[in-house]
Amino acid sequence: MKVRVLVRLKPGVLDPQGRAVHHALEGLGFAGVEDVRVGRLIELDVADDTDPAALTEMCEKLLANTVIENFTIETGEGGK
């Protein structure tokens, strides 16, 4: 089973990378970009009977740092 974990900085946590990318986009002449936040996509291939709770635990223990990041887990069709 394919699983996609999206890790994003929590709202309110400043994202220096996103800000630099934002500036670069403006430098390239793209107008109207309001904000840029850089996150991380982690694709896992796990056994079909993997317990969703185990996926959550993987995120909390390692894949995301919940001090600064939120995560969402997509499985099945969304996870493709």
């Binding site: 946590v13 400043l14 220096p16 990378q17 630099a20 740092n65 001090v67 600064i68």
Partner: peptide, 17 residues
């Protein structure tokens, strides 16, 4: 130490990159 949760908080990319 922060990742091991022995200390609170996190160390992020320097603000100036």
């Amino acid at each position: 130490l922060t990742e091991a949760r022995l200390l609170p908080g996190a160390l992020m990319r320097n603000a100036g990159q």
